[in-house]
């Protein structure tokens, strides 16, 4: 096991560091850093090989999103194919994740009846974000959730759902009435309702920014440690490499936590919007 970890770490850093040598020769340091984080139409498949232009004008982040979706679909279909009482490894992994989302996120927030109904949505959200977060840790791949457009789209979906579910459950009038605090006069009520509305909007933006900032910053931290080798001295690699490895491991944890936080908060916001103050 230890040997495998060492091999994986070596391969990762070999494939991750070499492009830096190539890139550092050609571009400035910040350009190199952002080249490895920001979206582009070309993908660096292997050190020494010229970047490949993606077909249909597709960007690397779009490719990551599609790849994540395909991986999840493939793995999930493999999971449901297996036995019932003695599930094999794909089924165990998928079922563990489903039970985690159901028992630790959805049911505690929404209750059993509503939670069972919403489980597929929140599970998909969790597994999709988790896969996209972790895909970015594979050399040559990029983290699509490190792009504000992706996280905003996901948050926007939650924002729209807050309105749709809220209006469906409480009625259009009931939904907006729910924003007014009870027992206050009209001018203050309107002001508070406006603040509540801004609150819903802000919560969605924060949801998006939190995920984006964490994923972007994590990768930036790893790459920054590696770039220090070229900025300070190649011998500085002995110091910066362990830090980069530590940040890389930490990033796996961050990817998991951020997917969990995004799903949990989405669940809470949708639940808050779909229940009246009295409930």
């Amino acid at each position: 096991m230890k040997l495998h970890i060492r091999k994986i770490t070596f391969v990762f850093f070999f494939t991750a560091v070499i492009p830096f040598f190539a890139a550092a020769e050609q571009a400035d340091v910040s350009g190199t850093l952002f080249h490895h984080i920001l979206d582009s139409k070309k993908i660096d498949l292997f050190p020494g090989i010229a970047p490949v232009t993606l077909p249909f004008g597709m960007s690397v982040h779009v490719l990551m999103l599609i790849l994540a979706a395909l991986l999840i679909v493939g793995f999930s279909l493999l999971a449901v194919k297996k036995g019932i009482l003695k599930p094999k490894s794909p089924a165990v992994i998928v079922e563990t994740l489903v039970l985690f989302v159901r028992d630790d996120i959805v049911i505690p927030v929404m209750g059993e009846e509503r939670g069972e109904k919403w489980l597929p949505f929140f599970f998909t959200q969790f597994i999709f974000l988790l896969t996209v977060n972790l895909l970015g840790l594979i050399p040559a791949f990029k983290t699509a959730t490190g792009n504000i457009n992706v996280t905003t789209s996901m948050a926007l979906l939650v924002f729209i759902l807050i309105f749709i579910i809220g209006m469906k459950n409480l009625g259009i009038v009931g939904f907006f009435k729910n924003l007014f605090p009870e027992g206050t006069n009209i001018p203050i009520g309107i002001f508070v309702a406006f603040l509540e509305f801004i609150g819903i909007f802000t919560r969605s933006i924060v949801l998006s920014l939190r995920l984006f900032a964490n994923m972007f910053a994590g990768h930036l931290a790893i790459l920054s440690f590696l770039v220090l080798i070229f900025v300070i001295n190649p011998l500085f690699g002995f110091v910066s490499m362990p830090f980069a490895v530590f940040t890389y491991v930490l990033e796996v944890l961050v990817g998991l936590i951020q997917a969990f936080v995004f799903t949990l908060l989405s669940c809470i916001y949708i639940m808050m919007a779909s229940t009246s103050e009295n409930e």
Binding site: L65, I66, I72, S76, F121, L157
Partner: peptide, 26 residues
């Protein structure tokens, strides 16, 4: 474009999981 692709990928994934994976899995 990326925002739209995010929705498409997520929507397609949600549809497939909801339709084909969740019933047998649950």
């Amino acid at each position: 474009g990326l925002a739209a692709w995010t929705w498409i990928a997520f929507g397609a994934l949600l549809f497939i999981l909801w339709k084909f994976v969740f019933p047998p899995l649950m």
